[in-house]
Simulated assay, not measured.
Amino acid sequence: MLYFRYPFSDQIFTTDETLVTKSVRFVSFDTNEILDFNGNINEVSLDEFSGNQIFSDTVPSVLNNFKEENEIDYLEKITQVINFAKENDLSKLVISRRKLVDFSNDKINLSQTFLNLSQSYPNAFVYLFVKNGKCWIGAFSEVLGKFNKKTSEFETMSLAGTIPVNEDWTNKEIEEQQPVTDYIANILKDYSVEINQSETYDHPSGNIKHLRTDFKAKIDREDLEKVISELHPTPAVCGFPKEFCRNAISEFENYSRSFYAGYIKVETDETIQYFVNLRCAEFFKNAALLYVGGGITADSSPDKEWQETELKAGAILKNLSFN
Rank of each mutant, 00 (worst) to 15 (best):
I195G: 01
N207R: 14
S300L: 01
K189D: 02
A281Q: 06
L320Q: 00
S301R: 07
R257C: 08
T297Y: 03
R98Q: 14
L289K: 04
V59A: 09
D168T: 12
P235T: 01
L35F: 09
S229N: 15
Q53N: 15
F244I: 04
F37P: 02
V94I: 12
T15R: 02
I54R: 06
G145W: 13
E76W: 12
M1G: 11
V126T: 15
L320D: 03
A236P: 02
L35D: 11
D202T: 11
G206T: 02
N52F: 08
E225R: 13
E270K: 12
R246H: 11
V81H: 05
F154E: 01
Y127A: 03
Q273G: 15
Y263F: 13
D10V: 10
G293N: 03
I264P: 11
L290N: 06
E17H: 14
K134T: 08
T271G: 10
G206N: 13
K131Q: 13
R279Y: 01
D16V: 09
V292K: 01
S118N: 13
R279G: 00
L320R: 04
G51H: 09
P7A: 07
R279L: 11
T58R: 14
R279W: 03
K92D: 00
T234S: 00
N148V: 13
S120H: 15
I34K: 10
S50Y: 05
F29I: 10
D106G: 08
S50K: 13
A160P: 01
I41P: 07
S50T: 11
I208H: 06
E267D: 15
Y201T: 07
I95A: 00
H210G: 01
Y127W: 07
T151W: 10
E194D: 15
C135A: 13
S250P: 07
L75D: 10
G51L: 10
I78H: 06
R221P: 15
E194I: 11
L317D: 00
V143R: 12
D220L: 05
F49N: 02
Q273L: 11
D269R: 08
F84V: 14
P302E: 10
I208A: 12
L100M: 05
L224D: 07
T15Q: 02
G294M: 05
L117H: 01
D47G: 06
D16G: 06
R279T: 04
C135P: 09
T297P: 09
Q307K: 15
F114W: 05
I137F: 08
I82H: 00
V62K: 15
N207C: 12
G206H: 08
E87Y: 11
R25C: 13
N277P: 07
S9G: 10
D47R: 05
S61Y: 07
I137D: 00
A261L: 12
D102A: 03
K216Y: 02
P164D: 08
E153P: 01
V81M: 04
Y201L: 09
D30F: 05
N286F: 00
L144H: 03
T15I: 03
